[in-house]
Amino acid sequence: MEKTFYEFLMTQRDPNSSQPLAHFADAAFFDHTFPKQSKDYNTLSEYLELNGSYLPNMDIFDQAYDLYRESEANFN
């Protein structure tokens, strides 16, 4: 069963990390309107562009999404 992007992102949480991906994951955890069921890049990207003030730049999302797709490819 394929994970949603949010499920993948939660595996990257680490409040003690200084890595941008960990900060993104922690912030998304506290974002109660994050599209948790989405797997779609465009849906997630649009949401973050409009609501992701906690994300310093979209490159972090792009990198996270690439890792998500790689992890799903390796799972299947």
Score class of each variant (00 low, 15 high):
Phe8Gln: 11
Ala25Glu: 14
Phe29Thr: 07
Asp62Thr: 05
Gly52Lys: 01
Leu48Gly: 13
Ala27Ser: 15
Pro15Leu: 06
Phe8Met: 06
Tyr65Thr: 02
Glu72Ala: 11
Asp31Leu: 06
Ile60Met: 03
Asp59Ala: 14
Asn16Ser: 11
Phe8Thr: 10
Leu21Arg: 10
Phe34Asp: 03
Phe5Tyr: 07
Leu50Val: 06
Leu55Arg: 15
Leu9Asn: 13
Asn74Ser: 03
Met10Ser: 05
Thr43Pro: 02
His23Trp: 01
Asp59Tyr: 11
His23Val: 03
Leu55Phe: 07
Asp14Glu: 13
Ser71Asn: 14
Tyr68Val: 06
Leu9Asp: 07
Leu55Met: 12
Asp26Cys: 08
Asp66Thr: 05
Ser53Asn: 14
Gln37Arg: 15
Phe29Lys: 13
Ala25Cys: 05
Tyr6Ile: 01
Ser45Ile: 01
Thr11His: 00
Phe34Gly: 12
Asn51Pro: 02
Met58Glu: 12
Lys39Ile: 06
Phe30Asp: 15
Asn42His: 15
Gly52Cys: 03
His23Thr: 04
Thr11Gly: 12
Ser53Leu: 13
Gln19Leu: 11
Glu49Asp: 13
Phe61Tyr: 10
Gly52Val: 06
Ser18Val: 10
Tyr6Val: 02
Pro20Arg: 08
Glu70Phe: 00
Met1Lys: 05
Tyr47Met: 03
Phe5Lys: 02
Asp14Cys: 03
His23Pro: 00
Ser18Phe: 05
Asn57Tyr: 09
Ser53His: 13
Arg13Ile: 00
Phe30Ser: 15
Arg69Val: 14
Lys3Ala: 06
Phe75Asn: 06
Phe24Ala: 10
Asp66Gly: 08
Tyr68Thr: 09
Leu9His: 08
Arg69Asn: 03
Ile60Thr: 08
Ser71Ala: 15
Gly52Asp: 14
Ala22Glu: 06
Pro35Ala: 11
Asp31Asn: 14
Asp66Gln: 06
Leu67Arg: 13
Glu46Cys: 14
Phe29Ser: 14
Leu44Lys: 04
Leu55Lys: 12
Tyr65Pro: 08
Glu2Met: 01
Tyr41Trp: 11
Asn16Arg: 14
Ser45Lys: 09
Thr4Asp: 14
Asn76Leu: 03
Lys36Ser: 10
Lys3Asn: 11
Gln19His: 15
Leu55Gly: 09
Ser17Gln: 02
Phe30Lys: 13
Ser17Val: 04
Tyr54Arg: 05
Glu46Tyr: 15
Asp66Tyr: 08
Arg69Leu: 07
Tyr68Ser: 08
Phe8Ser: 10
Asp31Lys: 02
Ala73Tyr: 00
Arg69Glu: 13
Phe24Thr: 03
Pro15Thr: 06
Pro35Tyr: 09
Thr4Ser: 14
Phe29Tyr: 12
Pro35Glu: 10
Gln63Trp: 02
Pro56Asn: 12
Ala22His: 01
Phe75Val: 00
Ser18Trp: 03
Phe30Gly: 08
Thr11Tyr: 03
Tyr6Arg: 09
Glu49Ile: 08
Tyr41Gln: 13
Asn42Arg: 15
Asp66Ala: 11
Asn42Pro: 03
Gln63Lys: 09
Glu2Cys: 00
Gln63Ile: 01
Gly52Ile: 03
Gln19Val: 05
Tyr68His: 05
